Amino acid sequence: MTTGTTREDTGVDVDLRKLRYFVAVAEELHFGRAAERLHIAQPALSRQMRALEDDLGVLLFCRDRRGTALTAAGARLLEEAPRLLAACTAMVRAVTAAAAATPKFTIGFMPGITVTPAVRALTSRHPGLDVRLLRTGWQDQVEVLRDGRADVSIVRLPIDRHGLQVRRLFTEPRVVALPADHPLAAKSSLIVGDLAGEHLLQDPDAVPEWRDVADELRTGERAEVRPINSVEEKLELVAAGAGICVIPLSTAAFYTRHDVVTLPVEDIAVGHVCLAWSTTSSSPFITDFADVAHLLTPPAPG
C-alpha cells in the first residue's frame, strides 16, 4: 500500500516514500551519495525523482556537468517536506500509542536538567502512566516534538517555535569551557573580549555576544563551524585544545572533568529553559505536566 497525502486543491497525491528520497537528494545535492544513504540503486533513485517531478508538474533539480542544484520549486519543497514527513511520523506514533493498553508519556530533556521532581508529581496524579525519558541535544530538542518521539520537551532557547507552544520555566547563567592549561583558566571570571580571539566550537549565532565582538576583529570570511551534536564531544575538543564552548551552568556541573575549566563570563546573557509541545498534540497529559513543570528549578550555584 502506498502511503500518501492528498492536496485537494490540485488533486495531486504525493507519495511519502518519494518525498523521503527527495529530501536525501536535496540535502546531498548528489544522486550517488543520496542513493548510498538510502541504500538503493542510483538509477532507481533517478526514476523516483523524475516520477515525483511528473506528479507535481514541476522541475525540482537542475543537473549539468557542474553537478546537481535545486530549482526554486525544489528549494521550497525542501522547506516543506521535512515538516510533512515529521507530521506523518508523529501521526503514526500517536495512533499506535492510542491503541496501547498502558498510556505512555515521553519527556525530552537536555543534558544537565533534572526532571525527577516533575515526573514524580505527574505519576502521583496518574499512577498507571508509563513515563519515558528521552535525552535530547541542540540538534533534536525540537525535532522530537515534530516527529512524535516526545510529547513534551524541556528545551533551551533559541529554538524554531513554528507549530509549538512554549512556556518559560527558568533562566540560568552560562559559562565558558576552557582547557585546564589555558592562559585564562586561572582567572575567576572573564568578559567576552577575553575570548574574541578563540575558536568557538558551536554556531556563533548561539553566542551572539561572542559573534559580534569576534566579527569586529575578523577581516576575512567567518570560518564554517562543523556541527557538534553532543556536549561530550564538545568537551573532548575543548580538553584537546581545539577551541572553547559556552554551555549552561547546569550542564557544566553535570559534566565536571579535571582537564576542563569552566568560568563565568560577565557580559554573556543568561540562558532560558522552557517547556515546549506541539500545538497539534493530542496527549491528555500535557496540561498536567505543564502544571507541575514549575518543580524544574534552576540549579543552585556551585
Rank of each mutant, 00 (worst) to 15 (best):
M1D: 10
M1R: 02
T2V: 11
G4D: 03
G4A: 08
G4Q: 03
T5L: 10
T6P: 03
T6S: 12
D9L: 10
T10I: 01
V12H: 05
V14L: 06
D15Q: 07
Y21G: 12
A24L: 05
A24C: 05
A26M: 13
A26N: 11
E27C: 10
E27F: 14
G32F: 06
E36M: 00
A41D: 15
Q42I: 10
S46G: 13
Q48C: 02
Q48H: 01
Q48D: 10
M49F: 14
A51F: 00
A51P: 02
A51K: 05
D54E: 05
D54R: 12
D55L: 01
L56Y: 04
G57V: 07
L59Y: 10
L60W: 03
F61V: 04
F61A: 01
R63I: 15
R65P: 13
R65Q: 10
G67N: 02
G67M: 00
A72N: 15
A73F: 13
G74K: 08
R76I: 06
A81L: 13
R83E: 07
A87H: 08
A87N: 05
A94R: 03
A94I: 04
A97T: 04
A98R: 02
T102A: 14
F109M: 05
P117H: 01
P117Y: 00
R120P: 00
A121E: 00
L122N: 04
G128I: 04
G128D: 04
L129E: 06
D130M: 14
R135V: 00
G137A: 11
G137P: 08
V142M: 08
R146M: 12
D147K: 06
G148S: 09
S153C: 08
P158K: 11
L164Y: 15
Q165A: 15
V166T: 15
F170R: 01
P173S: 12
A180Y: 06
D181W: 13
P183F: 13
K187W: 10
K187A: 09
S189Q: 13
S189W: 12
V192L: 08
L195T: 08
L195G: 15
A196Y: 07
G197D: 02
E198K: 06
H199K: 15
D203N: 02
P204S: 02
D205P: 08
V207C: 10
E209F: 14
R211H: 01
R211L: 09
A214L: 05
D215T: 11
T219W: 04
E224K: 11
I228M: 11
N229S: 08
L235S: 00
L235Q: 03
E236F: 01
C245Q: 08
L249M: 14
L249W: 12
A252V: 11
T256N: 05
V260S: 07
P264N: 05
V265D: 09
V265G: 07
D267R: 03
H272E: 14
V273R: 12
L275H: 07
T279L: 09
S282A: 10
F285C: 03
T287Q: 14
A290W: 02
L295G: 01
L296R: 00
